[in-house]
């Protein structure tokens, strides 16, 4: 399990590197090498580490450990074929982690990042719609049951494409350099993670790598079913490239517009879930 965890961290960071490189090439820039995010993580792990004088020390450090802990747990939940509701819970708890990162330092930049994280809570609702739609068809929220259902009825992406779209939007809302990345916008320096340097930032990078891996793997398993490992990795790379196209071609929205659009999408998805519930 530990080798798989390490693999997931490094592959997740590689995915983020591919994402960044693709954005750069679409925008006709050379961009950093695809392994840049891995280098970042390793570099921060060996840099001088400190805690700001104004920070809430225990929370400042604790939240990094919680961030790694929840996504490690999420990885093992997916591998064990447990309830997708746990993944949903962990995904939503990541918002609390962002909130904790931002507020614990006492920095105004981090604070604004944390506040933006709270106000963009609407971005999570499409995930609930996705789960509701899956539940209506598969009559279970266990990943193992969802995989079994797809072996009989075919991939869910063809049965409930809008639910797949909803989850795709959820993943998009968590991607860096995207239209909804208001929590780490440049006018806030780095937003909620501004004050976390050195080994704390390395921990955050590990969390980001794991998060990307888990979310993309969950997407592939839930909507395409059990696929051979090589195909799983290839599908994750292809999805991250499509996300990079969206991020490269859409400017970052203002916080107000970001929340408005996310709320609009959430509203449409709720109507879709109600329709499925009515007809299913």
């Amino acid at each position: 399990m530990i080798p798989y965890l390490i693999f997931a961290i490094f592959f997740g960071l590689l995915l983020l590197g591919i994402h960044r490189k693709t954005i750069a090439r679409i925008q006709r820039r050379p961009g950093p090498p695809v392994w840049q995010e891995i280098l970042h993580m390793l570099k921060f792990a060996f840099k001088v580490t400190w805690i700001p004088a104004t920070a809430s020390d225990t929370l400042f450090v604790g939240v990094v450990l919680i961030a790694i802990g929840i996504w490690t747990a999420a990885l093992f939940v997916v591998l064990a074929g447990e309830s997708i509701l746990i993944i949903f819970g962990i995904y939503m708890l990541h918002k609390i982690v962002e909130h904790g990162f931002g507020l614990s330092s006492g920095s105004p930049y981090g604070k604004f990042g944390g506040v933006r994280s709270v106000i963009s809570a609407a971005s999570e609702i499409p995930l609930f719609v996705s789960i509701a739609a899956i539940a209506i068809y598969t009559k279970s929220l266990m990943l193992s049951d969802i995989i079994d259902y797809q072996q009989v009825h075919g991939p869910l992406i063809f049965i409930i494409p809008l639910a797949a779209f909803a989850m795709y939007m959820v993943i998009l809302s968590k991607m860096p350099y995207g239209p909804f990345s208001v929590v780490e916008a440049k006018e806030l320096v780095s937003g909620y993670k501004t004050e976390h340097f050195g080994v704390w930032r390395a921990g955050l990078e590990i969390c980001n790598g794991l998060k990307s891996y888990v979310l993309l793997m969950t997407f592939v398993i839930v909507f395409f079913g059990a696929v051979p490992f090589a195909w799983l990795l290839l599908a994750m790379v292809l999805i991250i490239i499509t996300l990079a196209f969206v991020c490269a071609l859409c400017p970052m929205l203002s916080p107000f517009d970001s929340v408005t659009i996310q709320t609009g999408i959430a509203g449409l998805m709720l109507i879709y879930a109600l329709y499925l519930g009515w007809t299913g």
């Binding site: 004088a53 104004t54 809430s56 020390d57 919680i66 929840i70 708890l93 105004p108």
Partner: peptide, 20 residues
């Protein structure tokens, strides 16, 4: 998760916010 965060509340002191 509720337990871990409650322990964090017990162990943490509040930060000192910087304001412009």
């Amino acid at each position: 998760l509720a337990l871990v965060f409650t322990i964090l509340v017990i162990a943490s002191r509040p930060e000192r916010q910087l304001d412009i």
